[in-house]
């Protein structure tokens, strides 16, 4: 049987983490292809439903990443994101999901290498955990 390849969806803010991933690209820092990025303008834009929907549609892990507290283009998006994330974490925790499947990071535009490292770590961790325990709902994918 082929090795389990976890699927990761990453929500990255346009100004920092998305740019960090761009930098990883321009500096040819390699990381596994298991991650797919959704560009949002700010980490404060990430709605809990985006993350839940990612799990619903088959993600094994989700990354929510944006600027450091002081770098946010919209000043305090990360604070709002943290508050959202705290609630979200409680919810998926009650659902029984392993906490490691949901990760929050602040990765600045200069940290291409950090982005790649976070993805690698997640892929490795998720390989150990195995697939997320949700069966995808019929017709869930729009």
């Amino acid at each position: 049987m082929a090795e389990f390849e976890p699927q990761i969806i990453a929500f990255c803010c346009n100004w920092c983490t998305y740019a960090a991933a761009d930098l990883a690209g321009t500096s040819r820092v390699h990381y596994p292809p298991n991650v797919k990025i959704v560009r949002v303008m700010c980490s404060g834009m990430v709605n809990p439903i985006y993350v839940l929907k990612a799990f619903e549609s088959g993600a094994d892990g989700v990354l929510v990443a944006g600027c450091n507290l002081v770098d946010c283009y919209y000043l305090d998006g990360p604070v709002k994101c943290d508050a959202m994330f705290a609630i979200l974490k409680k919810l998926v925790h009650i659902l029984g999901l392993e906490d490691e499947r949901l990760r929050r990071e602040m990765i600045s535009a200069s940290e291409g290498v950090v982005f790649a490292r976070v993805v690698e770590e997640m892929v490795e961790g998720l390989k150990k955990l195995g697939p997320a325990p949700f069966k995808v709902k019929k017709g869930a994918v729009v």
Binding site: N47, P48, I49, L52, K53, F55, E56, L91, H93, I94, L95, G96, L97, P133, F134, K135, V136, K137, G139, A140
Partner: peptide, 28 residues
């Protein structure tokens, strides 16, 4: 494929859907 306008962005409906389709033990 229709649904109404979910309140709370559909978080609660999604949680129920995930709960239904999950094989793991909840931490209720």
């Amino acid at each position: 494929g229709e649904h109404g306008d979910y309140a709370h962005s559909g978080t609660l409906q999604s949680l129920v859907g995930l709960m239904a389709r999950s094989s793991i033990k909840q931490r209720r």
